[in-house]
Amino acid sequence: MESTNDQQGELYEVFIQSKPGQSFKHAGSVHAFDKNMALQNARDTYTRRNEGTGIWVVPSKEITALSLEEQAYFVEPSTDKIYRHPTFYNLPEGVKNM
């Protein structure tokens, strides 16, 4: 499929923190040739309207993701332990602050 020698850098994933104290959320991706360029491109692409102050950039190839084949059984153990949820428990009528 490739018919070009052009290069546009590596792919980085961008995570934005909307306010101090909030968790970082995936915003999208950018191309860059190094970390600093990735940060600058992320700022220009994803924070033109006060979307956030904190920015993380991570080379996409460094991200380890669950494979599609693993998905079903890998997360399966969490579904059969309903006693991990507070709603599982019976409580006496009238109990407060619980």
Binding site: E2, S3, T4, D6, S29, T45
Partner: peptide, 19 residues
């Protein structure tokens, strides 16, 4: 750029789209 990034997830490179 948002759209190129979305299109790239389908397995075609940015360079290829431009060419």
């Amino acid at each position: 750029l948002y759209l190129y990034a979305a299109a790239e997830t389908l397995g075609v490179s940015r360079e290829q789209f431009i060419s």
